[in-house]
Simulated assay, not measured.
Amino acid sequence: MRILVTGNAGFIGYHVARRLLERGDSVIGFDVVNDYYDPTLKEARLKRLDETAASSSGEYHFVRANLADRDAVDACFATHRPDRVIHLAAQAGVRYSIENPHAYVESNIVAYTNILEACRHTEVEHLTYASTSSVYGANTNMPFSEHRPADHPLQFYAATKRANELMAHSYSHLFRLPTTGLRFFTVYGPWGRPDMALFLFTRNILAGKPITLFNHGNHTRDFTFVEDIAEGVIRASDQPAAPNAEWDSANPDPATSNAPWRLFNIGNNNPVKLTAYVEALEEALGRKAIIERLPLQPGDVPDTFADTTALETAVGYRPATTVKAGVGAFVDWYREYYESVAS
């Protein structure tokens, strides 16, 4: 199987690409490797993928280019002819979208359009793409379900990802392109992004500096370990979306569709208070945090909680790594990685 993984130098993309290589698939990675955060970490991920590929039975090719460059995307598809696409490249970050919305238009709208068009014209058998729990926005009906509206995003980042879901539906309807959108819930773990809370907390605790808990630490999050996310992504990709068998063309339900299009939550189905997350980190580090509590920030969602029933039914998988185990794995990686960098 030839699988294009966009954003393979990124956090989730790295884990997905590595697992595909380990099972023997041929992987085409595509990443611009920008400086939104330390490119050294991205290059280290790419080096690990090279090492994994060298010991695997699948082929590995890496394209260093911008997905917003239509010619580069078209050339990649023409050269490598992927059977499936796992599109994980995006401009992430809730607060950064307030500062620099244009970056989100380029990475999350223009680049995504290029991917849809390339999939359409090369008859890709399945497009699986990243969305986010942030699309639920002002919705306070817990747990979040894919069957409820997600029409009131609270930040521009979430708005662009909701747009991706709707754009996918139009291509699924018009061109019968099978698409699966995956709404990720607070992903964390080894090789994470330096702008993520767990990374920032770990760095500051080890340095004896305060950590900031917004909303006075009263957030709850459905923290999901990155290896669980990678497993869910690959299982979803392996089972292409199909038209709704129960669709009645004579009496259509306006709330559903017969397009080969679907959305899944991927979360731990077990929300945890942010303060408990910090306690797990303190235990793993063997140090107490100095905590500064501040009000809720613009665009922040107070609570997230994933209903994962649809994912379990469709692909037979449900994330289950506990916060204690996941945070411990992150701390082990963090110490090892930064010790090797320092040496």
Rank of each mutant, 00 (worst) to 15 (best):
R148P: 00
E99P: 02
P153S: 08
E117M: 08
Q155F: 03
L49Y: 10
M167I: 08
L285Q: 01
P101N: 02
A197P: 07
P302D: 09
E59M: 04
V278M: 10
Y112A: 13
A242V: 13
E22Q: 15
F30I: 02
P254F: 08
N114C: 09
I3P: 05
P240F: 06
P190C: 01
V187W: 06
D238M: 05
V315A: 12
I115D: 06
H126P: 01
E283D: 14
A306N: 09
N34D: 15
L166Y: 11
A207G: 09
F144R: 04
P295W: 13
I115V: 15
Y14A: 03
R193A: 12
Q239Y: 00
A89R: 11
A325S: 14
H147C: 04
L213I: 09
T179V: 14
T309G: 13
L213G: 06
T113H: 12
T304Q: 09
N141I: 07
T140Y: 01
T186E: 13
L285N: 02
Y188G: 12
E123F: 11
G29R: 13
F144G: 03
Y338N: 13
T179M: 08
T275F: 00
I205P: 05
W261D: 09
D300K: 06
L166R: 13
R18C: 04
S56H: 07
N8M: 06
Y157V: 01
T321S: 12
G316V: 07
I3M: 08
I28D: 11
A9V: 11
K209I: 00
L166I: 08
A245Y: 04
P178F: 11
F199C: 03
F201C: 04
L177I: 01
Y171E: 07
G299W: 10
T40M: 08
G181E: 05
E283K: 14
L4V: 06
V341Y: 12
R120F: 03
Y104H: 00
A276F: 04
I229E: 08
F264P: 08
A54V: 00
A72H: 04
M142D: 06
A259S: 09
L200E: 14
V323R: 02
N164C: 15
